[in-house]
Design a binder for these strands. Structure first.
Length: 836
RNA sequence: GGACGGGUAGCUUAGGUUGGCUGGAGCACCCGGCUGAUAACCGGGAGGUCGCAGGUUCAAAUCCUGCCUCGUCCA
């Protein structure tokens, strides 16, 4: 350079060096002039420097960049370097073209010392910053590379005509042999690549048509504020930020396929004309017959127009570009109605659009281009509500792509678990705007839990309905007249339906569907249907059975309608079979028959049933072994559910009780900490006395300050009071309530017999099922009981015989079972049976 | 390099805006139970440094700062 020193610049793209036309430095950055005093310890790669050579670079980066021993001669701000000229690395590759600033140092704000040398190589045509700077300071703007990525002839005799990325290494060699290279270094950095082929891309300045979006920036922001975004932070954040940093829209593409850019230019006077219709083209065409029905390339390229400029008789030629395909997308909202040539009424009815929905990766696609076109052309918002969906990722959280091979083939799931389960899984797996890590097991679970349960509820209903020739149209059964269990499931369904609707409106599809699934599995299947089985076994005609069938019919049809928008197939089958009509033609349910008190009561009943099961487990009392008595302490208003509850928790006699003390006693435990301090060596004596004393009187005395033991007065702080169940009782308070269930845990011969009968029934029923017997089929049953079993009483044996539909039955207590009998153990006693 | 979002049990996740009781669930696992529609269900158990480090506070998964890491878009 016009200085004795060499200036050290840095690049990650050697192929842009022939195009170098300037160097940028930070005016405020401190630079150092150093002299090489000695060789380095070792040296990797090409490049180097002579002893005594002077080098200029940013002071902060001396240690990172230089390998030689050096001395710093002076330091100075970058502004002192501005204006100095240097010799091009590839003389002749770029023509000076009258530029005053070519191959000089210029100042630029973007230069930092976070990496490189603090001196930025600038090749105007191959980088955005470079181009902007070059235009500003007047560097020559010439390509050294053609559109195929090859160096133009005249760049350098060993580079001409070669693909630039293949030349990087040779360029380093050339610099090395000319003593122009200081150092090469491996450096990891991001670089854009073609998403399809994986080839590295070249930044390349080229002519384009733009839509001046910057002119409507404020309007875009204003309209965006009127859109209801889900989630809201996309509108203000990601999309809002994009609009705030809006760039002009590069609208032209050098392609063949696509919507032709409708711009014609006169070669004589440069007048430009944008055509708006085929009619207009025919009118202006030099030869109207060239305007064909197909307005695409190549036909449209043949059309020449009469120049529209005053006094010019030139023939205008079409710009050969096509439009960015996203422009077509942005026009969809009016183009679908063929507006402006037709469909204006349709457009008015449907614009702005109520709702659009696309992946979050479409921020710059649909979301932006629709708004861009509606703003520039219609000065209006385009859509009122917009849901930005999260992407579907693979199990490792990577975006699915065919080239990576990490895609899940949806057909695998459609064929295995069905489209319904796949769809329901995808909706319930997370909020729609969150990325979804697709989990195949989740689809499996949804299939088993949601759709098999739905189908089984339907099967249960339809099997018994068929047996009874049930026809919902024929019989009439007002909801108000049905038993409370029926009114409860109907109320509950309607409450869930109302929430479901509200959650859909609030974008919470995932929560809505999870709640509905919970209703189906827990409320309908595991409570209503389970509690109703016996009602349908009734072989006569009863009002109760009729009510149950009507209720199942009503609940299933409504449920189908709610599920249909998400999972349309199985519910359509069910709905058609139940009503003869497709679910997709049915009305959306409107909530009715809601009864909050009834729902609350049933919730309490279910919590009590749960408490009953829990208390049995904790007290080691088998579910099938009945309890003689149970009491509900603090319950009111649920008497009508006592039959259900007593059956559910297997209690023979369930009653309301107000006095919990009847089942509980207190225990007094010493507080060793306070007592120890108080009694010292007398503590064992006091503790022994405490253990002996009657807890009730003791506690009474302590509270009234008249408890003196071994000369010490005991205060409430000295003891801990615990309430425990009296011998033979077990208790538990139901969740979210003040109601306590107390069970009598006493075991009697009668109860053991009943429990034994239930065990046998259960095993035989399982056997019936294993043998795949028809529900109505009869069997022959033989039972042998080992001697250590409790006695099976006559009434209980009769119960077994009728429950399992045995037409003849033999009971042998204490006898020897023959080979081939089924065997099981209850409390260590063997039981054998045979079903024929 | 910029914008935005995420990181909670082996896995999938709720909660986070408004700090507060023992951080909930599901799958899988272990033990027990229910079941004449169910591949469903119920009870118990084991499994958590709520990415890391600081800060604010009587108190932080939650608020603040920095960092690490993953994702998407842009460059």
């Amino acid at each position: 350079m016009d200085d004795d020193a060499k200036i050290l610049a840095w690049t990650t793209t050697p192929w842009t060096l022939p195009g170098n036309v300037g160097l940028a430095v930070g005016p405020g950055v401190t630079y150092a002039r150093v002299r090489v005093t000695d060789s380095p310890q070792g040296w990797d790669g090409r490049g180097g420097a002579e002893i005594g050579e002077e080098i200029i670079l940013a002071e902060d980066l001396l240690g990172d960049v230089l390998r030689h021993q050096i001395e710093v001669i002076e330091t100075f701000p970058g502004s002192e370097l501005v204006g100095k000229a240097y010799d091009p690395l590839f003389p002749g590759a770029v023509d000076r073209d009258g530029s005053e600033t070519a191959w000089t140092v210029v100042g630029a704000d973007f230069v930092t010392t976070t990496d490189g040398t603090g001196v930025v190589h600038t090749a105007v045509m191959y980088g955005e910053d470079d181009y902007i700077l070059g235009m500003e300071v007047g560097f020559p703007a010439q390509h050294t590379v053609d559109m195929d990525g090859r160096f133009f002839p005249g760049t350098h005799n060993s580079l001409d005509g070669r693909y630039v990325k293949d030349c990087d290494d040779d360029i380093i060699d050339l610099l090395h042999y000319d003593n122009l290279l200081y150092r090469e270094k491996m450096y990891v950095h991001d670089y854009p690549h073609c998403w399809r082929t994986g080839h590295p891309l070249l930044y390349y300045a080229m002519d384009s048509w733009f839509v001046r979006m910057t002119a409507v920036k404020e309007r875009l922001l204003e309209f965006n504020d009127q859109v209801e975004w889900a989630p809201a932070n996309i509108g203000t954040g990601r999309f809002g930020e994009w609009l705030r940093n809006i760039k002009d829209w590069a609208i032209s593409r050098e392609r063949f396929w696509g919507t032709p850019l409708p711009v014609w230019i006169c070669p004589d006077c440069d007048h430009q004309h944008c055509a708006g219709s085929r009619d207009e083209l025919r009118e202006l065409a030099v030869d109207a017959s060239k305007v064909t029905e197909d307005p695409h390339r190549p036909f449209v390229d043949e059309v020449l127009l009469h120049c529209q400029a005053d006094g010019c008789s030139g023939e205008m030629v079409r710009e050969t570009y096509v439009m960015d395909c996203w422009f077509d997308s942005g026009c969809a909202f009016f183009a679908q109605w063929h507006h402006p040539f037709a469909g204006t009424e349709k457009l008015e009815q449907n614009f702005p659009i109520d709702y659009i929905c696309e992946g979050v990766d479409q921020t710059r696609g649909w979301f932006y281009t629709l708004l861009a076109v509606s703003t520039t052309v219609f000065d209006s918002i385009c859509y009122k509500r917009c849901l930005s969906l999260g992407l579907i990722l693979d199990a490792e959280g990577k975006k699915m792509s065919k080239s990576k091979g990490n895609i899940v083939d949806p057909w695998d799931h459609f064929n295995r678990e069905g489209a319904d389960a796949t769809r329901w899984y995808m909706v319930t797996a997370g909020a729609p705007w969150n990325p979804l890590k697709f989990d195949s097991n989740g689809v499996r679970d949804t299939y088993g839990k949601m759709f098999l349960t739905l189908w089984n509820c339907y099967k249960f209903h339809t099997d018994y309905a068929a047996l009874d020739n049930f026809d919902p149209e024929v019989s009439d059964c007002p909801v108000a007249s049905r038993p409370s269990l029926d009114r409860w499931i109907i109320s509950k369904l309607n409450s869930v339906a109302a929430d479901y609707h509200a959650q859909f409106e609030g974008w919470d599809f995932h929560k809505a569907c999870r709640d509905l699934e919970d209703f189906l599995v827990n409320d309908l299947s595991n409570w209503y249907v389970r509690r109703s089985r016996r009602r349908l076994w009734d072989e006569g005609d009863s009002a109760d059975k009729m009510a149950c069938q009507h209720t199942l019919h009503d609940v299933l049809t409504t449920l189908c309608r709610l599920i249909a928008p998400v999972s349309p197939f199985m519910v359509d089958e069910i709905h058609r079979n139940l009503t003869g009509e497709s679910v997709h033609l049915a009305d959306w349910p409107t909530p009715q028959h809601q009864d909050a008190d009834l729902e609350a009561s049933m919730q309490l009943v279910r919590n009590l049933a749960e408490a009953g099961r829990k208390v049995r487990v904790m007290n080691d009392h088998r579910q099938r072994l009945p309890c003689q008595s149970g009491w509900l302490v603090g319950a009111s208003g649920i008497d009508e559910f006592y039959p259900i509850l007593s059956e559910e928790i297997n209690v023979l006699n369930l009653q309301t009780e107000t006095d919990l003390d009847r089942f509980q006693r207190i225990e007094i435990a010493p507080n060793r900490k306070t007592l120890g301090r108080k009694c010292r060596q007398d503590l064992p004596k006091v503790m022994a006395a405490l253990a002996e004393a009657d807890p009730d009187t003791l506690w009474d005395d302590i509270q009234n300050s008249r408890c003196i033991i071994a000369g010490f007065e005991l205060e409430p702080i000295d003891v801990e009071v615990k309430r425990v169940e009296r011998e033979g009782f077990a208790a538990m308070t139901a969740e979210d309530s003040d109601v306590t269930l107390v069970l009598d845990m006493t075991v009697t011969e009668e109860l053991l017999s009943m429990g034994l009968a239930r065990e046998i029934i259960r095993r035989v029923q399982q056997k019936r099922k294993d043998l795949d017997l028809d529900v109505e089929a009869s069997i022959s049953l033989s039972v042998w009981l080992d001697e250590n079993n409790p006695e099976l009483l006559g009434g209980d044996w009769d119960h077994v015989v009728s429950e399992v539909r045995a037409k003849d039955a033999i009971l042998d207590q204490g006898g020897q079972a023959p080979d081939g009998a089924e065997t099981f153990d209850i409390d260590g006693a063997g039981i054998h049976f045979k079903v024929e």
